[in-house]
Amino acid sequence: MKFYVCIKMVPDVNAPLQIKDGQLIQDADRMILNAYDASAVEEALVLKEAHGGEVEVVCIGSAKAAETIRKALAMGADKATHIQTSGDERYDSGTYARILAKFFEDKEYDIISLGKQSQDTDSGLTGSMVAELLDLPYTTNAVGLNAEDGKLIVKRQGDSGQEMIELSTPCAVTCSNDMNEPRIPNLKGIMASKRKPVEQIELSSMGLDDDALSPNTNVLGYEEKPDRQAGKKYEGEPDEIAREVAQLLDTEANVI
């Protein structure tokens, strides 16, 4: 089974943030492999270990994204393609999807998988966009994958329950981080990753016109969340404070 896993380098949302003149500043320029993509890589590796095949990762990003690609290779992916950008572009999900669709145009594969969203913007659009552009059957928010008779069986989290969906291949699937715990690369994996092939493609050489690359959404600026003040903390005899707060929820907050 040939897997392509699309991965992305994202800022670590746990790092401190501030807004200066409407722009987002990260104190530490900590960039990591998107957690949802890490789950997609992990699940592809598990299926490869069970059924054989190949796992290739594809990453659109600046030169710095080489670290992100290395991480996926160290986890166990066989090879990688790095679609190089300058890093200054303001691409939106649609742009990423059009670049990926162009890349996949002449490729052969069984499954394209992606994280269900980026952990910085939480948009969750690219996966189903790629599927639509390539006219592939797809499903999103997968919490489990299985392969059977050339079909992909996906357990996905829906609105009120989990749905078991069978997709004929080739297909696309987006992965939740609830499906697994991505492996931490060990020393052997890290050493091996240095010998694995990483094909470099210049975005400008892919033949995409300005129309395809220009985003139709923009970030105008950032603002702080309306401040949520810490309220009162009640400490002491559990029986007393529990009853006191219950009373206040009725008389003060008016929510009971």
Partner: peptide
Amino acid sequence: KRPVMAAKIIAQNEAKG
């Protein structure tokens, strides 16, 4: 407006088309 960065801040976005 969209909450981003694990909803720690709000992004102001525009969409055109």
